[in-house]
Design a protein around this nucleic acid. Structure first.
Lengths: 268, 268
DNA sequence: CGAGATTTGTACGTATGTATA
DNA sequence: TTATACATACGTACAAATCTC
């Protein structure tokens, strides 16, 4: 971690000072040239770091004025999630947070299944299914979590609704990080994972939206419940998830939900 | 428009060539120095433009190799939406696209109301309500659309579930662009807008989640229906003949008709 | 209100490291 | 192994917006 480049070092330093309270929202940061001198780097490096912080929604720069710290809790981007989760203040209401994050995951998965059921052609569905079956045997919890996320993303891709795909892409990156954190606690795939997914794909291939969504809902109920008990086991009584599976409802029409986007600033 | 800076010009040129098919997914772009010479700018400018295209999910650069065009339909980010909507191929299935985008809006609004109802304290709800009432009188369609979006975002903020806020932020930017396109066609706020919103806030303040969501659902039903008729009126039969006259329909299958766009970006 | 100082925005250049072909 | 090409970092110069006195 110590050898990640000057820009990364400068960005981390500034971000730590900001979330740590040294630079509270509203204050003006020192001039770029001053920061360069203070941090021992060139102004271009400071600018690159500030640019990345700007895409995180943490600072904003204006000509003649300077770089001001934003109210990052209110103006931030999804990429802040991993930073936020490492703060003590986030741990304070971890239960509520985890419940809401699981709900987001559920909404995303539902939308993925709905889109695929409604719009994907047979070949696309079969292709995603092959990808699922072709990579089983993996027992590493993190690898399993990533694969599961990718399956749902591929379902969105199969629908060919490209804007939905792009929103999914934006959601998936922070979700991946979250899964990377939770997976070691959640453990590997349940024993009936292959069976459950296979049945889900049966419903999707049959264009039976109602059954597909119901099956997914039951499956996630079970998975979330298991995750909860394991977390309680790991943390003691610290994390009761507040996930009401009040997600299906809706007497008629409509069902689940997608969401938003983020951006990053680095190449390769 | 003509004086937006070299980077913007270079980015736009490259993006047009890519989405236009000159550089199909998979091909390697010319070297940065070659592009700089060809486009009449410095290599740094080319790099900045390529960096922005990389954040859009359009290209990826690797050391020693070069910048390769990605499958941007599958790997893109939400910021691609305005560019995509300006393509003829997007217009082809505009009805389906608009239906799905309206569905996303509905899901987001529902989640906003739910989060506020569940977590926001009285002061926060009252604050959002004041913001709503304090800015009425605006009849400009675009201004109204932006204000409406902002109200729902503020509802999420009021919940204090910051990760949800960040996801909302990311989603809101492209949504704003979409609204900017549709608003002039949709017209200003309906006559009963204030009343409907006021009632919605009553339910939220009373923590009546069921009534709040039901009220919102009915309201959006009405709004979407009006939008549909106005779009049909505006476009008549001028756009794809494949568009059935029935634009909404609730059980399955959605439709309507959007249009094209462009966008800009900068820091500060 | 105006003038000058401050600060960021933009563009380009150079040098060196490093991965790829 | 060598040549190519990108990644990274620092620097310069000037333009443009803002702030301050």
């Amino acid at each position: 971690m110590t050898h990640a480049g000057e820009v990364v070092r400068v960005r981390r330093t500034l971000l730590e000072r900001i979330v740590g309270g040294d630079f509270p929202p509203g204050v003006r940061l020192p001039a770029e040239t001053d920061l360069a001198g203070e941090l021992g780097c060139g102004r271009s490096t400071v600018r690159e770091a500030l640019g990345q912080l700007a895409t995180l929604g943490v600072v904003a720069s204006r000509r003649g004025s300077g770089a001001h710290v934003l109210d990052w809790r209110r103006e931030g981007s999804p990429a802040l999630l991993p930073y936020y989760l490492s703060l003590p203040s986030a741990l304070a209401d971890a239960p509520r947070l985890l419940g809401e994050l699981l709900r987001m995951r559920r909404l995303l998965a539902s939308e993925a299944v709905r889109l695929a059921t409604r719009y994907a052609d047979d070949a696309a569905i079969a292709s995603v299914r092959r990808a699922l079956e072709g990579s089983d045997g993996a027992v590493d919890p993190v690898a399993h979590a990533m694969r599961e996320l990718e399956i749902f993303r591929q379902l969105v891709v199969s629908s060919g609704i490209w804007p939905a795909v792009w929103f999914a892409n934006a959601f998936w990156a922070p979700m991946r990080e979250l899964h990377g954190l939770l997976a070691p606690l959640a453990g590997g795939p349940p024993g009936d994972y292959e069976t459950a997914m296979s049945r889900l794909f049966d419903h999707v291939a049959a264009r039976d939206e109602a059954r597909a969504l119901a099956h997914l809902d039951r499956w996630l109920d079970k998975v979330d419940r298991e995750l909860e008990t394991r977390l309680v086991h790991a943390f003691g009584s610290a994390t009761p998830p507040a996930t009401p599976s009040k997600l299906r409802i809706k007497p008629r029409r409509k069902s689940a939900a997608p969401k938003a986007a983020s951006s990053k600033r680095s190449r390769s």
